[in-house]
């Protein structure tokens, strides 16, 4: 068996079994839809009525939905670094590392799983958004585009989380950092307010934040239908994902040292 097929079969196996775990306990998909739903109904409901945020010709709820989708992607992704520490604390990770698959395929498998898992979550939130009457733009292109953007973003943030896990190494620190970064990532993006409203320093952070591009792409696909920024968004996401995956695969063996 060649190195390449070993690698690919390793990745697919890890991904498949990560997903099997989700299917054994599908209630987690529903539980994790509660918070996004609250964002839409409560936060979106109130701010939509206040009409303080200039969202052009779209309702605030339409504007917010892509932001909430993106948020649920980071919540899922951050979780992967924590599980990795968890699996290290048991013997699971050591045992995985003792098998003949290339070690990078373990990380790639997990990030793919994060991408696929994010899709599941997104479908549910999407349906909820439609159910509460938010108008979204749906056709073949937009659906395929959304799938691509969400998978990329799931991979991007899960490898960020795995990279952080290999640096921080303990469950407590990972929990701490999980909380410390998810909210800032969310607020320092265009998820809940247009970037033009931000003070300059925040705008700089938002421009460096991959999540802004996730939100921008999702908004183009689902709401505005204006695809002019889409190539830029996809390019930035692909670049960030590649860089973070490289970082995660090279650093993650530190977690067991």
């Amino acid at each position: 068996m060649t190195a390449a097929t070993r690698m690919i079969s390793g990745i697919l196996t890890i991904t498949e079994f990560e997903l099997r775990k989700v299917f054994h306990d599908s209630s987690q998909v529903f539980v994790r839809a509660i918070q996004p739903l609250l964002w839409l109904v409560v936060f979106g409901g109130v701010f939509g009525r206040l009409r303080v945020l200039p969202t052009g010709s779209y309702s605030y709820l339409q504007f917010l939905t892509p932001g909430v989708l993106a948020q649920s992607v980071i919540f899922i992704a951050v979780f992967y670094g924590i599980t990795l520490v968890w699996e290290r604390d048991f013997g699971l990770l050591n045992k995985l590392l003792s098998t003949p698959i290339p070690h990078s395929s373990i990380i790639l498998g997990k990030t793919f799983a994060a991408g696929a898992r994010s899709i599941l979550q997104a479908v549910l939130i999407f349906l909820l958004a439609l159910a509460i009457g938010i108008q979204l733009h749906i056709d073949v292109v937009s659906v395929l585009g959304v799938v691509l953007v969400i998978v990329l973003s799931g991979m991007c943030f899960s490898s960020l989380s795995i990279f952080l896990a290999s640096m921080l190494k303990t469950r407590e620190r990972m929990m701490g950092i999980g909380q410390a970064i998810t909210m800032p990532l969310f607020f320092a993006s265009s998820a809940i307010y247009p970037m033009d409203l931000m003070p300059t320093w925040l705008k700089v952070v938002a421009i460096a934040n991959p999540l802004s591009y996730t939100v921008d792409a999702l908004r183009a696909l689902l709401v505005t239908g204006d695809y002019s920024h889409l190539p830029r968004d996809l390019a930035v996401l692909t670049l960030a994902t590649t860089a973070l995956i490289c970082l995660a695969t090279t650093s993650f063996k530190r977690i067991v040292d």
């Binding site: 079994f17 099997r20 775990k21 054994h24 306990d25 604390d89 048991f90 013997g91 699971l92 050591n94 045992k95 003792s98």
Partner: peptide, 15 residues
């Protein structure tokens, strides 16, 4: 080789 680590190494969320 086969390896059974000291700590629990089966995945409780799988059968």
């Amino acid at each position: 080789c086969g390896y059974v680590p000291q700590e629990v190494s089966v995945d409780g969320d799988l059968t």
